[in-house]
Design a protein around this nucleic acid. Sequence first.
DNA 1: CATTGTGAAGCGTTTCACAGCC
DNA 2: GGCTGTGAAACGCTTCACAATG
Lengths: 228, 228
Amino acid sequence: MYLQILVEQADSGVESISSEGLAELAGVNAAKVRKDLSYLGSYGTRGVGYEVDYLVYQIRRELGLDHDWPVVIVGAGNLGQALAGYGGFGERGFPVGGIVDIDDAKVDTVVGGARVRHIDELPAIVGAKNISIGVVATPPGAAQDAADRLVRAGVSSILNFAPVVLSVPAGVTVRKVDLAVELQILSYHEQRRSEQRRTNQLRAASGGNMAPVGPSPRSAEARRDASA
Amino acid sequence: MYLQILVEQADSGVESISSEGLAELAGVNAAKVRKDLSYLGSYGTRGVGYEVDYLVYQIRRELGLDHDWPVVIVGAGNLGQALAGYGGFGERGFPVGGIVDIDDAKVDTVVGGARVRHIDELPAIVGAKNISIGVVATPPGAAQDAADRLVRAGVSSILNFAPVVLSVPAGVTVRKVDLAVELQILSYHEQRRSEQRRTNQLRAASGGNMAPVGPSPRSAEARRDASA
DNA sequence: CATTGTGAAGCGTTTCACAGCC
DNA sequence: GGCTGTGAAACGCTTCACAATG
């Protein structure tokens, strides 16, 4: 996240930034920024701050972003197609090295500039482009099989969009992005807000005093809290 | 996550589950499951376990999933279209109540069964369907404006797919899904793995003894760790 | 007697507070 | 004087361990 912000700042011509400035932009505590950055080494200058370009370079190096990581997408349905068509991946160093599907009807169609290939070609694709990262964009029922195939093909990191817990051997990293879970979390907050409103109405109706729970001044502090 | 697993279990005819069983499926510790569920109330039976259906009901109630939450999508580009076309949302209680874009060329096109409307109609759409949740699927530069418009229209929860930190008033919840960040995290793990391999080679070449760092037996334990 | 519910310990992360340094 | 780097305290989440109980 720091990387994103720093790149943005660099693009706007900012050359130096303090931990406090970066914290403000990231919505976190300044001490946290300093501690986080200290794990990279001592790249700040006391009394001055951090040089944006240099920090970008160091973070990129630490994250292994000094070269591209081609990815292979399994599943050419709605989501797979959108991911393949979404230019943002390539821009950020993750070009789509291939997209595969198990359905012959989808094979050889073209999405986002890539031809869909059959899932049986996975080992060939992974081998040819030396791919380490796979994306599972299949329906839930096909996700474990997709993961197994990716692992067998030699992939060691998986980004999973299917709403299932994947089981993989040790040494393989899985990250899960579950859109429904994100919405459920928002639903929970909405639920609480509406319960809160009911309680306030009751309290107001009964004429009692109450601690303020409504919007406080729109300070940076408050805005940070809002996304917690 | 428990909810997902429990619904799946219910569909396969499982009627009762222990904290240990649920922990296994979720890839977490059994004590954590019990503590988590204890916040809902005491819905288990000692010596027996939890009744799946009842637990599903209680979790749904707590999360506010006892009714649908229509969502409005801002941005009808690649991602917005995929989200609108992705049936999974509606199935899980989040039907697409509308999709808007600022670009007249996209307005009135139809994606995933919904007609794209102009972003100026946002207040009308939100008001008519009583929408609380908005999805930002715009390019980075347009995201803050999209968020501001959503908030002005009365939305109080936002799911943000744009790679920017949104600034919203207190009382509005934002969750961010950043695909590039997910891939960057995987890149970091890959980076470490390749560094590890180099170190091992050096150690092996120098003939020294070393603690095992490679794959261990594929136990449930190890597979859990893999996704950490 | 298997399994829950939960105090208490353990542990990693965040924040404070200030010495160190430019 | 201003800002970094970092021990130490605070905090919150996870896990242990076991009393409670159907």
